[in-house]
Amino acid sequence: MKPAPFEYAGPRELDEALDLLAEHGDDARVLAGGQSLVRLMNARQVSPAVVVDINRVPGLDTLGLFGDNGSSTLRLGATVRQRTSELSDEVAAHAPLLAEAGAQVAHAPVRARGTVVGSVAFADPSAELPAALLALDGLVKVRSRAAERTVAADDFFTGPFRTSLAPDEMVVAVDVPVATGRTGSAFVELTRRHGDLPVCGAAAVVGVGDDGRVSHVRVALCGADERPVRVPAVEAAVLGADDPAAFTEAAAVAADGTSPIPSCHGSADFRRHLARVLTARALRTAFARATSPKETTDA
């Protein structure tokens, strides 16, 4: 199969790209890494009239720290490749969850072109990076010709492959607050084969106070619902814990109230089971990393 004909636009300024989106709306698609879009176009599952290639827009390849004191937030622009993020010292130091989740996306040649922001904007409910962004309390920076807005990751994902993005808008970057204090994170997933999308995955960020107890925690899942979701019931149950056994107990409610999409890769029940097991693993590993930096794998 080959893509249906389309007009190709390679704007060299952001405003030019936004003009095209304003003009064409739903008939236009933004092309960054293309590792999802071109696949869908090859299969004619999507046939946009206009493809807006943003790879020549200057400034969108930003990867670095900014904010209060110049270093409170890590920003990844819309054309930052997954491979670049995965291998970046700054990502490793300030948002290691993003690196760990990113390394589990597809295969190296796909990650070499695919972008972090593209995966977020595509909003596959099974994909790793949207769940990682949720667990990191990330922000999605959105631009249109008319306005600029910032959407919390919690509010960005609205359904399978659905986001709160309007047709004339594009994501220009994602921001994540940098890890501070005694914080550990972990991303664990189950895939049918190496490089496949996970059947289910769990992301956890755990902060530990001076008393050795969990002082803040965020847990997010992919493949467990119609969109990447946080699991506040688990987070509430884990706060104040100081014993890894408590995480397994807390993870028992990880699938409560979720609506997993069943497929040949896993029934809804199997996905609920995985959500519980993987949540416990992610929490234990994240806690171990927060309390003892040398501890890196699940006990």
């Binding site: 190709y8 290639d53 790879n55």
Partner: peptide, 29 residues
């Protein structure tokens, strides 16, 4: 496969292994 899964079409673009089925020629000026 023409969907980036099988790797048969892998070539090297600007020193990076790339799926040639998932890149438009127009992107490679």
């Amino acid at each position: 496969c023409e969907q980036g899964v099988c790797g048969a079409c892998t070539v090297i673009v600007d020193d990076v292994a790339t799926r040639s089925c998932l890149v438009f020629a127009a992107q490679l000026d």
